[in-house]
Design a protein around this nucleic acid. Structure first.
Length: 608
DNA sequence: ATGCATCGCGCG
DNA sequence: AAAGCGCGCGATGCAT
Protein backbone atom coordinates (compact mmCIF):
# COMPACT_ATOMS: atom_id res chain seq x y z
CA UNK A 1 0.00 0.00 0.00
CA UNK A 2 1.25 3.44 -0.90
CA UNK A 3 1.39 5.97 1.89
CA UNK A 4 0.45 9.51 1.03
CA UNK A 5 0.93 12.55 3.23
CA UNK A 6 -1.41 15.46 2.67
CA UNK A 7 -1.66 19.04 3.84
CA UNK A 8 -4.29 21.60 2.86
CA UNK A 9 -3.84 25.36 3.02
CA UNK A 10 -7.19 27.10 3.23
CA UNK A 11 -8.59 30.61 3.22
CA UNK A 12 -8.90 32.38 6.55
CA UNK A 13 -9.72 35.88 7.69
CA UNK A 14 -10.36 37.76 10.91
CA UNK A 15 -13.99 36.68 11.17
CA UNK A 16 -13.31 33.28 9.68
CA UNK A 17 -10.66 31.32 11.55
CA UNK A 18 -10.24 27.91 13.10
CA UNK A 19 -9.48 29.47 16.46
CA UNK A 20 -12.78 31.34 16.47
CA UNK A 21 -14.94 28.57 15.09
CA UNK A 22 -15.30 24.86 15.42
CA UNK A 23 -13.61 22.71 12.77
CA UNK A 24 -17.02 21.48 11.67
CA UNK A 25 -18.31 25.02 11.25
CA UNK A 26 -15.19 26.24 9.44
CA UNK A 27 -15.03 23.46 6.86
CA UNK A 28 -18.76 23.56 6.16
CA UNK A 29 -18.84 27.35 5.81
CA UNK A 30 -19.72 28.96 2.47
CA UNK A 31 -16.49 30.94 2.64
CA UNK A 32 -14.39 27.77 2.72
CA UNK A 33 -11.75 27.68 -0.02
CA UNK A 34 -8.67 25.56 -0.63
CA UNK A 35 -5.73 27.81 -1.50
CA UNK A 36 -3.60 24.82 -2.31
CA UNK A 37 -2.68 21.32 -1.28
CA UNK A 38 0.52 19.32 -1.08
CA UNK A 39 0.50 15.59 -1.60
CA UNK A 40 3.57 13.48 -0.88
CA UNK A 41 3.78 9.93 -2.18
CA UNK A 42 5.78 7.69 0.16
CA UNK A 43 9.10 9.45 0.60
CA UNK A 44 9.06 11.26 -2.73
CA UNK A 45 9.10 15.01 -3.17
CA UNK A 46 5.68 16.52 -2.37
CA UNK A 47 3.52 17.82 -5.21
CA UNK A 48 1.94 21.20 -4.62
CA UNK A 49 -1.22 22.07 -6.45
CA UNK A 50 -3.28 25.23 -6.46
CA UNK A 51 -6.42 25.56 -8.51
CA UNK A 52 -10.10 26.18 -8.07
CA UNK A 53 -12.15 23.65 -6.14
CA UNK A 54 -13.09 21.69 -9.25
CA UNK A 55 -9.51 21.52 -10.49
CA UNK A 56 -8.30 20.55 -7.02
CA UNK A 57 -10.82 17.72 -7.04
CA UNK A 58 -9.38 16.41 -10.32
CA UNK A 59 -5.87 16.67 -8.96
CA UNK A 60 -6.78 14.74 -5.81
CA UNK A 61 -8.74 12.03 -7.55
CA UNK A 62 -5.64 11.23 -9.58
CA UNK A 63 -4.08 9.56 -6.56
CA UNK A 64 -6.65 6.84 -5.95
CA UNK A 65 -6.55 7.57 -2.23
CA UNK A 66 -9.55 5.30 -1.62
CA UNK A 67 -7.17 2.38 -1.86
CA UNK A 68 -4.23 3.90 -0.02
CA UNK A 69 -3.17 5.14 3.39
CA UNK A 70 -3.14 8.88 4.00
CA UNK A 71 -1.27 10.70 6.74
CA UNK A 72 -1.95 14.20 8.00
CA UNK A 73 -1.07 16.16 11.09
CA UNK A 74 -4.42 16.75 12.76
CA UNK A 75 -6.14 14.46 10.29
CA UNK A 76 -9.69 15.43 11.26
CA UNK A 77 -9.08 18.68 9.39
CA UNK A 78 -7.59 17.36 6.16
CA UNK A 79 -9.75 14.21 6.00
CA UNK A 80 -12.93 16.22 6.59
CA UNK A 81 -11.96 18.47 3.67
CA UNK A 82 -11.22 15.41 1.54
CA UNK A 83 -14.59 13.87 2.29
CA UNK A 84 -16.89 16.85 2.62
CA UNK A 85 -15.55 18.84 -0.35
CA UNK A 86 -14.06 16.19 -2.63
CA UNK A 87 -15.94 13.03 -1.67
CA UNK A 88 -12.69 11.13 -1.08
CA UNK A 89 -12.37 8.70 1.82
CA UNK A 90 -8.92 7.12 2.17
CA UNK A 91 -8.57 3.41 2.83
CA UNK A 92 -6.48 4.07 5.92
CA UNK A 93 -6.27 7.29 7.88
CA UNK A 94 -3.19 8.06 9.95
CA UNK A 95 -2.95 11.06 12.23
CA UNK A 96 0.45 12.10 13.53
CA UNK A 97 -1.16 14.40 16.11
CA UNK A 98 -3.01 11.46 17.63
CA UNK A 99 0.15 9.36 17.57
CA UNK A 100 2.01 12.13 19.37
CA UNK A 101 -0.64 12.27 22.09
CA UNK A 102 -0.30 8.56 22.75
CA UNK A 103 3.48 8.62 22.78
CA UNK A 104 4.12 11.83 24.71
CA UNK A 105 1.05 13.97 25.14
CA UNK A 106 2.32 16.11 27.94
CA UNK A 107 6.05 16.40 27.53
CA UNK A 108 6.25 17.47 23.88
CA UNK A 109 2.85 18.81 23.00
CA UNK A 110 1.10 18.08 19.75
CA UNK A 111 2.25 20.90 17.50
CA UNK A 112 4.16 19.90 14.40
CA UNK A 113 6.74 22.59 15.18
CA UNK A 114 7.61 21.07 18.55
CA UNK A 115 7.49 17.48 17.35
CA UNK A 116 9.96 17.99 14.50
CA UNK A 117 12.40 19.59 16.93
CA UNK A 118 11.89 16.76 19.43
CA UNK A 119 12.64 14.15 16.78
CA UNK A 120 15.42 16.18 15.21
CA UNK A 121 13.98 15.85 11.73
CA UNK A 122 14.08 19.49 10.74
CA UNK A 123 12.38 22.76 11.42
CA UNK A 124 9.12 24.24 10.33
CA UNK A 125 9.34 27.09 7.85
CA UNK A 126 9.94 30.47 9.50
CA UNK A 127 9.09 32.55 6.47
CA UNK A 128 5.66 34.01 7.08
CA UNK A 129 3.40 33.64 4.09
CA UNK A 130 0.99 36.52 3.90
CA UNK A 131 -2.18 34.53 3.56
CA UNK A 132 -4.40 36.34 6.01
CA UNK A 133 -7.65 37.48 4.43
CA UNK A 134 -6.49 36.53 0.94
CA UNK A 135 -8.57 34.51 -1.48
CA UNK A 136 -6.71 32.19 -3.81
CA UNK A 137 -7.09 34.61 -6.68
CA UNK A 138 -5.57 37.41 -4.59
CA UNK A 139 -2.19 35.67 -4.36
CA UNK A 140 0.61 36.67 -6.73
CA UNK A 141 2.24 33.67 -8.44
CA UNK A 142 5.35 34.25 -6.32
CA UNK A 143 3.36 34.25 -3.07
CA UNK A 144 1.54 31.15 -4.14
CA UNK A 145 4.80 29.41 -4.96
CA UNK A 146 6.19 30.36 -1.55
CA UNK A 147 3.04 29.03 0.08
CA UNK A 148 3.54 25.80 -1.82
CA UNK A 149 7.09 25.49 -0.50
CA UNK A 150 5.85 26.00 3.03
CA UNK A 151 3.03 23.50 2.62
CA UNK A 152 5.28 20.88 1.03
CA UNK A 153 7.78 21.28 3.85
CA UNK A 154 4.96 20.53 6.31
CA UNK A 155 4.23 17.35 4.36
CA UNK A 156 7.89 16.32 4.49
CA UNK A 157 8.02 16.99 8.22
CA UNK A 158 4.78 15.19 8.91
CA UNK A 159 6.06 12.16 7.04
CA UNK A 160 9.36 12.36 8.92
CA UNK A 161 7.74 12.32 12.36
CA UNK A 162 5.40 9.57 11.18
CA UNK A 163 8.41 7.41 10.40
CA UNK A 164 9.92 8.13 13.81
CA UNK A 165 6.75 7.63 15.82
CA UNK A 166 5.58 4.70 13.73
CA UNK A 167 8.54 2.49 14.54
CA UNK A 168 6.93 0.75 17.47
CA UNK A 169 3.43 2.09 17.30
CA UNK A 170 0.85 -0.63 18.08
CA UNK A 171 -1.24 -1.74 15.10
CA UNK A 172 -4.43 -1.68 17.18
CA UNK A 173 -3.81 1.94 18.08
CA UNK A 174 -3.36 2.84 14.40
CA UNK A 175 -6.77 1.29 13.81
CA UNK A 176 -8.33 3.17 16.72
CA UNK A 177 -6.98 6.46 15.42
CA UNK A 178 -8.52 5.67 12.04
CA UNK A 179 -11.87 4.88 13.68
CA UNK A 180 -11.79 8.00 15.83
CA UNK A 181 -11.02 10.34 12.93
CA UNK A 182 -13.76 8.78 10.81
CA UNK A 183 -16.37 9.35 13.54
CA UNK A 184 -15.84 13.01 12.71
CA UNK A 185 -14.98 13.03 9.03
CA UNK A 186 -17.57 10.47 7.92
CA UNK A 187 -20.58 11.47 9.99
CA UNK A 188 -23.70 9.31 9.93
CA UNK A 189 -25.79 10.54 12.85
CA UNK A 190 -28.58 13.02 12.32
CA UNK A 191 -30.04 15.63 14.61
CA UNK A 192 -33.74 16.08 15.29
CA UNK A 193 -34.31 19.81 14.87
CA UNK A 194 -37.84 19.67 16.22
CA UNK A 195 -36.81 17.97 19.47
CA UNK A 196 -33.94 20.42 19.84
CA UNK A 197 -36.08 23.49 19.19
CA UNK A 198 -38.70 22.34 21.71
CA UNK A 199 -36.03 21.59 24.27
CA UNK A 200 -34.40 24.97 23.81
CA UNK A 201 -37.75 26.67 24.33
CA UNK A 202 -38.41 24.64 27.48
CA UNK A 203 -34.98 25.39 28.91
CA UNK A 204 -35.31 29.10 28.22
CA UNK A 205 -38.80 29.24 29.68
CA UNK A 206 -37.65 27.50 32.84
CA UNK A 207 -34.76 29.91 33.11
CA UNK A 208 -37.08 32.90 32.73
CA UNK A 209 -39.41 31.53 35.41
CA UNK A 210 -36.53 31.29 37.85
CA UNK A 211 -35.50 34.86 37.09
CA UNK A 212 -39.09 36.10 37.44
CA UNK A 213 -39.52 34.34 40.78
CA UNK A 214 -37.13 36.77 42.51
CA UNK A 215 -36.54 40.49 42.75
CA UNK A 216 -32.99 40.43 41.46
CA UNK A 217 -31.40 40.55 38.03
CA UNK A 218 -29.53 37.55 36.74
CA UNK A 219 -26.18 39.35 37.01
CA UNK A 220 -26.80 39.87 40.75
CA UNK A 221 -26.84 36.18 41.47
CA UNK A 222 -24.28 34.79 39.01
CA UNK A 223 -21.45 36.83 40.48
CA UNK A 224 -20.26 35.32 43.76
CA UNK A 225 -19.54 38.61 45.56
CA UNK A 226 -22.85 40.11 44.43
CA UNK A 227 -24.78 37.03 45.49
CA UNK A 228 -23.03 37.14 48.88
CA UNK A 229 -24.00 40.79 49.32
CA UNK A 230 -27.63 40.11 48.46
CA UNK A 231 -27.83 37.16 50.86
CA UNK A 232 -26.24 39.19 53.63
CA UNK A 233 -28.67 42.05 53.02
CA UNK A 234 -31.51 39.62 53.71
CA UNK A 235 -29.99 38.34 56.92
CA UNK A 236 -28.79 35.01 55.60
CA UNK A 237 -25.45 33.63 56.72
CA UNK A 238 -23.12 33.47 53.71
CA UNK A 239 -21.66 29.94 53.64
CA UNK A 240 -17.90 29.77 53.21
CA UNK A 241 -15.43 26.95 52.59
CA UNK A 242 -11.75 26.37 51.99
CA UNK A 243 -10.73 25.98 48.38
CA UNK A 244 -9.17 22.58 47.78
CA UNK A 245 -6.86 24.02 45.11
CA UNK A 246 -5.67 27.25 46.67
CA UNK A 247 -6.48 26.65 50.32
CA UNK A 248 -8.03 30.12 50.50
CA UNK A 249 -11.42 30.92 51.97
CA UNK A 250 -14.10 31.03 49.29
CA UNK A 251 -17.88 31.10 48.91
CA UNK A 252 -19.67 27.78 49.29
CA UNK A 253 -22.26 28.28 46.57
CA UNK A 254 -22.13 24.91 44.82
CA UNK A 255 -25.02 22.50 44.50
CA UNK A 256 -23.35 20.07 46.91
CA UNK A 257 -22.51 22.62 49.59
CA UNK A 258 -24.83 21.62 52.40
CA UNK A 259 -25.04 25.05 54.03
CA UNK A 260 -25.95 26.61 50.69
CA UNK A 261 -28.65 24.01 50.09
CA UNK A 262 -29.99 24.72 53.59
CA UNK A 263 -30.80 28.24 52.41
CA UNK A 264 -33.53 26.72 50.23
CA UNK A 265 -35.44 26.47 53.53
CA UNK A 266 -34.46 29.87 54.88
CA UNK A 267 -37.38 31.72 56.60
CA UNK A 268 -37.09 34.59 54.10
CA UNK A 269 -38.90 33.42 50.95
CA UNK A 270 -36.83 35.80 48.82
CA UNK A 271 -33.65 34.08 50.01
CA UNK A 272 -35.17 30.77 48.98
CA UNK A 273 -36.01 32.10 45.53
CA UNK A 274 -32.55 33.59 45.05
CA UNK A 275 -30.77 30.38 46.00
CA UNK A 276 -33.12 28.28 43.88
CA UNK A 277 -32.51 30.58 40.93
CA UNK A 278 -28.75 30.45 41.36
CA UNK A 279 -28.75 26.65 41.57
CA UNK A 280 -31.05 26.34 38.59
CA UNK A 281 -29.14 28.80 36.44
CA UNK A 282 -25.59 27.77 37.26
CA UNK A 283 -25.26 25.08 34.64
CA UNK A 284 -25.76 26.46 31.17
CA UNK A 285 -24.91 23.11 29.61
CA UNK A 286 -28.40 22.23 28.38
CA UNK A 287 -28.92 25.60 26.75
CA UNK A 288 -25.54 26.13 25.13
CA UNK A 289 -25.31 22.54 23.96
CA UNK A 290 -28.79 22.61 22.44
CA UNK A 291 -27.90 25.79 20.59
CA UNK A 292 -24.73 24.19 19.23
CA UNK A 293 -26.66 21.10 18.17
CA UNK A 294 -29.22 23.24 16.40
CA UNK A 295 -26.56 25.10 14.47
CA UNK A 296 -24.92 21.83 13.41
CA UNK A 297 -28.34 20.47 12.43
CA UNK A 298 -28.74 23.43 10.10
CA UNK A 299 -25.53 22.46 8.31
CA UNK A 300 -25.99 18.70 8.05
CA UNK A 301 -25.26 15.43 9.82
CA UNK A 302 -23.39 15.39 13.11
CA UNK A 303 -19.64 14.83 13.06
CA UNK A 304 -18.57 13.21 16.34
CA UNK A 305 -15.49 15.00 17.64
CA UNK A 306 -13.49 12.79 19.98
CA UNK A 307 -9.94 13.45 21.04
CA UNK A 308 -7.92 10.28 20.82
CA UNK A 309 -5.70 9.73 23.90
CA UNK A 310 -6.89 12.88 25.68
CA UNK A 311 -6.15 11.50 29.14
CA UNK A 312 -2.70 10.20 30.04
CA UNK A 313 -4.49 6.93 30.78
CA UNK A 314 -5.45 6.72 27.10
CA UNK A 315 -9.08 7.63 27.48
CA UNK A 316 -10.80 9.58 24.77
CA UNK A 317 -11.96 13.10 25.50
CA UNK A 318 -14.38 15.57 23.96
CA UNK A 319 -13.27 18.02 21.30
CA UNK A 320 -14.30 20.81 18.91
CA UNK A 321 -16.05 22.79 21.67
CA UNK A 322 -18.77 20.20 22.04
CA UNK A 323 -18.01 17.51 24.55
CA UNK A 324 -20.23 14.59 23.57
CA UNK A 325 -18.98 12.61 26.55
CA UNK A 326 -20.79 14.67 29.13
CA UNK A 327 -24.30 15.00 27.77
CA UNK A 328 -26.64 14.67 30.76
CA UNK A 329 -27.69 11.05 31.14
CA UNK A 330 -31.36 11.82 30.91
CA UNK A 331 -31.76 14.70 28.52
CA UNK A 332 -33.75 15.39 25.36
CA UNK A 333 -30.36 16.13 23.82
CA UNK A 334 -29.67 12.42 23.66
CA UNK A 335 -33.00 11.76 22.05
CA UNK A 336 -32.19 14.35 19.40
CA UNK A 337 -29.23 12.28 18.18
CA UNK A 338 -30.66 9.93 15.56
CA UNK A 339 -29.47 6.96 13.58
CA UNK A 340 -29.85 7.52 9.82
CA UNK A 341 -33.00 6.35 8.07
CA UNK A 342 -33.17 2.57 7.93
CA UNK A 343 -30.78 2.23 10.85
CA UNK A 344 -30.91 2.08 14.63
CA UNK A 345 -28.30 2.65 17.28
CA UNK A 346 -26.97 0.06 19.70
CA UNK A 347 -25.33 1.35 22.86
CA UNK A 348 -23.50 -1.06 25.12
CA UNK A 349 -21.95 -0.32 28.52
CA UNK A 350 -19.24 -2.44 30.04
CA UNK A 351 -20.34 -3.41 33.57
CA UNK A 352 -18.08 -2.22 36.44
CA UNK A 353 -15.05 -2.66 34.23
CA UNK A 354 -12.67 -0.79 36.50
CA UNK A 355 -13.74 -2.65 39.64
CA UNK A 356 -13.27 -5.96 37.79
CA UNK A 357 -9.88 -4.92 36.44
CA UNK A 358 -8.77 -3.85 39.90
CA UNK A 359 -9.72 -7.17 41.50
CA UNK A 360 -8.04 -9.05 38.66
CA UNK A 361 -4.84 -7.02 38.79
CA UNK A 362 -4.63 -7.37 42.57
CA UNK A 363 -5.11 -11.13 42.34
CA UNK A 364 -8.09 -10.80 44.70
CA UNK A 365 -9.46 -14.02 43.32
CA UNK A 366 -12.54 -14.43 45.54
CA UNK A 367 -13.78 -11.11 44.18
CA UNK A 368 -12.76 -11.98 40.60
CA UNK A 369 -14.64 -15.26 40.85
CA UNK A 370 -17.72 -13.57 42.28
CA UNK A 371 -17.75 -11.26 39.26
CA UNK A 372 -17.14 -14.27 37.02
CA UNK A 373 -20.10 -16.18 38.46
CA UNK A 374 -22.30 -13.16 37.97
CA UNK A 375 -22.95 -12.79 41.67
CA UNK A 376 -24.13 -9.57 43.26
CA UNK A 377 -20.78 -8.29 44.55
CA UNK A 378 -22.42 -5.22 46.07
CA UNK A 379 -24.52 -7.49 48.29
CA UNK A 380 -21.48 -9.59 49.13
CA UNK A 381 -19.69 -6.45 50.27
CA UNK A 382 -22.72 -5.37 52.29
CA UNK A 383 -22.88 -8.80 53.86
CA UNK A 384 -19.30 -8.37 55.12
CA UNK A 385 -20.06 -4.86 56.35
CA UNK A 386 -23.26 -5.79 58.19
CA UNK A 387 -22.17 -9.31 59.19
CA UNK A 388 -25.23 -11.07 57.91
CA UNK A 389 -26.15 -13.40 55.06
CA UNK A 390 -26.32 -12.04 51.52
CA UNK A 391 -30.01 -13.00 51.33
CA UNK A 392 -30.88 -10.61 54.16
CA UNK A 393 -29.22 -7.54 52.67
CA UNK A 394 -31.67 -4.67 52.23
CA UNK A 395 -31.73 -2.22 49.35
CA UNK A 396 -30.12 0.50 51.47
CA UNK A 397 -27.39 -1.83 52.66
CA UNK A 398 -26.70 -2.92 49.10
CA UNK A 399 -26.29 0.72 48.13
CA UNK A 400 -23.57 1.08 50.79
CA UNK A 401 -21.88 -2.04 49.42
CA UNK A 402 -22.03 -0.63 45.92
CA UNK A 403 -20.54 2.69 46.92
CA UNK A 404 -17.72 0.94 48.76
CA UNK A 405 -16.90 -1.46 45.89
CA UNK A 406 -16.86 1.34 43.34
CA UNK A 407 -15.26 3.98 45.53
CA UNK A 408 -12.91 2.46 48.08
CA UNK A 409 -10.65 0.63 45.65
CA UNK A 410 -8.27 3.52 45.29
CA UNK A 411 -7.50 4.32 48.92
CA UNK A 412 -10.57 6.42 49.63
CA UNK A 413 -10.42 7.41 53.29
CA UNK A 414 -13.25 7.30 55.78
CA UNK A 415 -13.57 11.08 55.99
CA UNK A 416 -14.20 11.51 52.28
CA UNK A 417 -16.41 8.45 52.33
CA UNK A 418 -18.43 10.16 55.05
CA UNK A 419 -18.83 13.31 52.95
CA UNK A 420 -19.70 11.24 49.90
CA UNK A 421 -22.39 9.29 51.75
CA UNK A 422 -23.85 12.47 53.18
CA UNK A 423 -24.17 13.92 49.68
CA UNK A 424 -25.86 10.70 48.62
CA UNK A 425 -28.35 11.32 51.42
CA UNK A 426 -27.07 8.69 53.86
CA UNK A 427 -26.35 9.94 57.35
CA UNK A 428 -23.69 7.83 59.02
CA UNK A 429 -21.32 8.56 61.89
CA UNK A 430 -17.64 9.07 61.13
CA UNK A 431 -16.85 6.00 63.25
CA UNK A 432 -19.23 3.88 61.23
CA UNK A 433 -17.62 5.14 58.01
CA UNK A 434 -14.22 4.22 59.36
CA UNK A 435 -15.44 0.75 60.25
CA UNK A 436 -16.86 0.25 56.76
CA UNK A 437 -13.70 1.42 54.98
CA UNK A 438 -11.58 -0.92 57.10
CA UNK A 439 -14.00 -3.77 56.50
CA UNK A 440 -13.41 -3.29 52.77
CA UNK A 441 -9.64 -3.27 53.19
CA UNK A 442 -9.74 -6.35 55.45
CA UNK A 443 -12.14 -8.23 53.19
CA UNK A 444 -10.04 -7.67 50.07
CA UNK A 445 -6.54 -7.23 51.52
CA UNK A 446 -4.75 -7.74 48.21
CA UNK A 447 -6.16 -4.44 47.01
CA UNK A 448 -4.43 -2.28 49.66
CA UNK A 449 -1.36 -4.39 48.95
CA UNK A 450 -1.59 -3.32 45.33
CA UNK A 451 -1.58 0.33 46.47
CA UNK A 452 1.76 -0.36 48.12
CA UNK A 453 2.99 -1.77 44.83
CA UNK A 454 1.80 1.42 43.18
CA UNK A 455 3.93 3.43 45.56
CA UNK A 456 6.91 1.18 44.84
CA UNK A 457 6.31 1.69 41.12
CA UNK A 458 6.81 5.43 41.61
CA UNK A 459 10.09 4.80 43.41
CA UNK A 460 11.18 2.51 40.58
CA UNK A 461 10.35 5.14 37.96
CA UNK A 462 12.30 7.74 39.89
CA UNK A 463 15.27 5.40 40.37
CA UNK A 464 15.07 4.22 36.74
CA UNK A 465 14.59 0.63 37.87
CA UNK A 466 12.41 -2.13 36.50
CA UNK A 467 9.82 -4.22 38.33
CA UNK A 468 6.52 -5.97 37.86
CA UNK A 469 3.27 -4.38 38.91
CA UNK A 470 0.26 -6.46 39.93
CA UNK A 471 -0.53 -10.00 38.88
CA UNK A 472 -0.63 -11.77 35.50
CA UNK A 473 2.46 -9.96 34.11
CA UNK A 474 0.14 -7.42 32.52
CA UNK A 475 2.22 -4.45 33.60
CA UNK A 476 5.88 -3.75 33.95
CA UNK A 477 7.55 -0.69 35.38
CA UNK A 478 10.39 0.19 33.02
CA UNK A 479 12.18 2.93 34.89
CA UNK A 480 11.79 6.44 33.53
CA UNK A 481 9.87 5.24 30.48
CA UNK A 482 6.98 4.61 32.83
CA UNK A 483 4.65 1.65 33.18
CA UNK A 484 4.46 -0.56 30.12
CA UNK A 485 0.86 -1.45 29.26
CA UNK A 486 -0.24 -4.63 27.48
CA UNK A 487 -0.75 -2.76 24.19
CA UNK A 488 2.88 -1.65 24.14
CA UNK A 489 2.22 1.96 25.10
CA UNK A 490 3.36 3.47 28.39
CA UNK A 491 1.61 5.12 31.28
CA UNK A 492 4.00 7.97 31.96
CA UNK A 493 4.64 10.32 34.84
CA UNK A 494 6.67 13.12 33.25
CA UNK A 495 8.81 15.17 35.57
CA UNK A 496 8.18 12.78 38.47
CA UNK A 497 9.91 14.02 41.61
CA UNK A 498 9.82 13.65 45.37
CA UNK A 499 8.89 16.97 46.91
CA UNK A 500 10.12 17.18 50.50
CA UNK A 501 8.64 20.49 51.54
CA UNK A 502 5.46 21.58 49.93
CA UNK A 503 4.06 24.59 51.75
CA UNK A 504 2.93 23.26 55.09
CA UNK A 505 2.39 19.83 53.53
CA UNK A 506 3.89 16.39 53.82
CA UNK A 507 6.54 15.12 51.42
CA UNK A 508 4.98 13.62 48.32
CA UNK A 509 5.51 12.50 44.74
CA UNK A 510 4.60 15.06 42.10
CA UNK A 511 4.47 14.87 38.30
CA UNK A 512 3.56 17.38 35.61
CA UNK A 513 0.42 17.43 33.51
CA UNK A 514 -0.10 19.78 30.62
CA UNK A 515 -3.28 21.76 30.96
CA UNK A 516 -3.71 24.10 28.05
CA UNK A 517 -0.24 25.57 27.69
CA UNK A 518 0.91 25.35 31.27
CA UNK A 519 2.51 22.51 33.19
CA UNK A 520 0.55 21.82 36.32
CA UNK A 521 2.13 19.86 39.18
CA UNK A 522 0.00 16.92 40.18
CA UNK A 523 0.47 14.88 43.32
CA UNK A 524 0.63 11.15 42.85
CA UNK A 525 0.67 8.21 45.27
CA UNK A 526 0.20 4.46 45.28
CA UNK A 527 -3.58 4.29 45.24
CA UNK A 528 -3.75 6.86 42.48
CA UNK A 529 -1.21 4.97 40.35
CA UNK A 530 -3.45 1.92 40.69
CA UNK A 531 -6.47 3.97 39.66
CA UNK A 532 -4.58 5.28 36.62
CA UNK A 533 -3.44 1.81 35.72
CA UNK A 534 -6.93 0.30 36.00
CA UNK A 535 -8.35 3.11 33.90
CA UNK A 536 -5.63 2.54 31.31
CA UNK A 537 -6.28 -1.22 31.25
CA UNK A 538 -10.03 -0.70 30.98
CA UNK A 539 -9.41 1.68 28.08
CA UNK A 540 -7.30 -0.94 26.29
CA UNK A 541 -10.04 -3.54 26.80
CA UNK A 542 -12.66 -1.18 25.38
CA UNK A 543 -10.37 -0.30 22.50
CA UNK A 544 -9.87 -3.93 21.55
CA UNK A 545 -13.61 -4.51 21.82
CA UNK A 546 -14.34 -1.51 19.65
CA UNK A 547 -12.11 -2.93 16.91
CA UNK A 548 -13.89 -6.25 17.22
CA UNK A 549 -17.27 -4.53 16.92
CA UNK A 550 -16.01 -2.50 13.95
CA UNK A 551 -15.44 -5.67 11.92
CA UNK A 552 -19.20 -5.74 11.37
CA UNK A 553 -20.69 -2.44 12.45
CA UNK A 554 -19.77 1.18 12.41
CA UNK A 555 -18.83 2.64 15.81
CA UNK A 556 -20.24 6.14 16.06
CA UNK A 557 -19.40 7.07 19.62
CA UNK A 558 -17.61 5.96 22.77
CA UNK A 559 -17.96 7.22 26.33
CA UNK A 560 -15.18 5.59 28.37
CA UNK A 561 -16.85 2.27 29.10
CA UNK A 562 -19.52 2.35 26.41
CA UNK A 563 -19.57 1.85 22.66
CA UNK A 564 -22.35 3.00 20.34
CA UNK A 565 -22.78 1.69 16.80
CA UNK A 566 -25.34 1.91 14.03
CA UNK A 567 -26.84 -1.10 12.26
CA UNK A 568 -29.61 -1.65 9.71
CA UNK A 569 -32.99 -1.83 11.47
CA UNK A 570 -33.83 -5.23 10.01
CA UNK A 571 -30.84 -6.84 11.72
CA UNK A 572 -30.78 -4.73 14.87
CA UNK A 573 -31.30 -7.65 17.28
CA UNK A 574 -28.43 -9.61 15.77
CA UNK A 575 -26.33 -6.47 15.88
CA UNK A 576 -27.01 -6.03 19.58
CA UNK A 577 -26.17 -9.68 20.26
CA UNK A 578 -22.94 -9.30 18.32
CA UNK A 579 -21.95 -6.15 20.23
CA UNK A 580 -22.70 -7.90 23.52
CA UNK A 581 -20.52 -10.85 22.50
CA UNK A 582 -17.69 -8.48 21.63
CA UNK A 583 -17.99 -6.67 24.93
CA UNK A 584 -17.76 -9.93 26.85
CA UNK A 585 -14.69 -10.99 24.93
CA UNK A 586 -11.58 -11.09 27.11
CA UNK A 587 -8.26 -9.79 25.90
CA UNK A 588 -5.52 -12.32 25.10
CA UNK A 589 -3.40 -10.75 27.81
CA UNK A 590 -6.17 -11.20 30.41
CA UNK A 591 -7.95 -14.52 29.83
CA UNK A 592 -9.14 -14.62 33.46
CA UNK A 593 -10.60 -11.11 33.54
CA UNK A 594 -14.38 -11.51 33.80
CA UNK A 595 -16.26 -9.00 31.67
CA UNK A 596 -19.91 -8.25 31.20
CA UNK A 597 -22.06 -5.60 29.58
CA UNK A 598 -25.53 -4.15 29.24
CA UNK A 599 -26.87 -3.08 25.89
CA UNK A 600 -29.94 -1.61 24.28
CA UNK A 601 -31.04 -0.31 20.91
CA UNK A 602 -33.33 2.33 19.52
CA UNK A 603 -33.79 4.93 16.80
CA UNK A 604 -31.98 7.55 18.88
CA UNK A 605 -29.01 7.66 21.25
CA UNK A 606 -31.37 8.44 24.11
CA UNK A 607 -33.55 5.44 23.44
CA UNK A 608 -30.80 2.82 23.58
C1' DA B 1 -9.82 42.91 23.89
C1' DT B 2 -7.52 38.73 25.27
C1' DG B 3 -5.42 35.20 28.25
C1' DC B 4 -5.23 32.69 32.46
C1' DA B 5 -6.76 30.80 36.88
C1' DT B 6 -10.46 29.12 39.37
C1' DC B 7 -14.70 27.14 40.23
C1' DG B 8 -18.72 24.54 39.03
C1' DC B 9 -20.82 20.81 36.62
C1' DG B 10 -21.76 17.29 33.21
C1' DC B 11 -20.04 12.36 32.03
C1' DG B 12 -17.38 7.87 33.06
C1' DA C 1 0.86 5.86 57.14
C1' DA C 2 -2.67 8.10 54.32
C1' DA C 3 -4.34 10.08 50.15
C1' DG C 4 -10.67 7.99 45.11
C1' DC C 5 -9.56 9.07 39.84
C1' DG C 6 -9.94 10.79 34.56
C1' DC C 7 -11.70 14.52 31.27
C1' DG C 8 -13.84 19.45 28.52
C1' DC C 9 -16.70 23.52 28.52
C1' DG C 10 -18.77 27.82 30.36
C1' DA C 11 -18.81 31.67 33.47
C1' DT C 12 -16.53 34.83 36.41
C1' DG C 13 -12.82 37.64 38.00
C1' DC C 14 -8.46 39.37 37.45
C1' DA C 15 -4.08 40.33 34.95
C1' DT C 16 -1.93 41.77 30.79
Amino acid sequence: MTIYTIDFETYYASDYTLSGMTTEEYIRDDRFEVIGVSVKRDNEKPMWFSGNMVQTGYFLRGFNLENEAVIAHNAVFDMAILNWHFNIRPKRIIDTLSMARALHGTEVGGSLAKLVVHYGVGEKGTEVVKAFGKRREDFTPEDLAAYGEYCSLDCDLTYAIFEKMGENFPMNEFKLIDLTVRMFTEPTLELDKEVLAKHLYAVKTRKQELIDSMELEIADIMSNPKLAAELEKRGAIVPMKKSPTTGKETFAFAKNDEEFKDLLEHPDLEVQAIVAARLGLKSTLEETRTERFLRIAGRGTMPVPLRYYAAHTGRWGGDDKINLQNIPRVSPLKKAILAPTGYEMVDSDSSQIEARTLAWLAGQNDLVEAFDRGEDVYKIMASAIYRKPVEDITKDERFIGKTVILGAGYSLGHKKFHVFMKQAGVDMSLDECERIIYTYRDTYPLIPELWVQGQMALKAILGDLSSDLGQHFALRVEGQRGIRLPNGLYLRYPGLRWVEEEEGGKPQFVYDTLRGKTLVPNRIYGGKVIENVCQALARIVIGEQMLLVARRYRPVMTVHDAIAIIAPTEEIDQAQTYVEQCMRTRPKWAPTLPLNCEAGHGPSYGEC
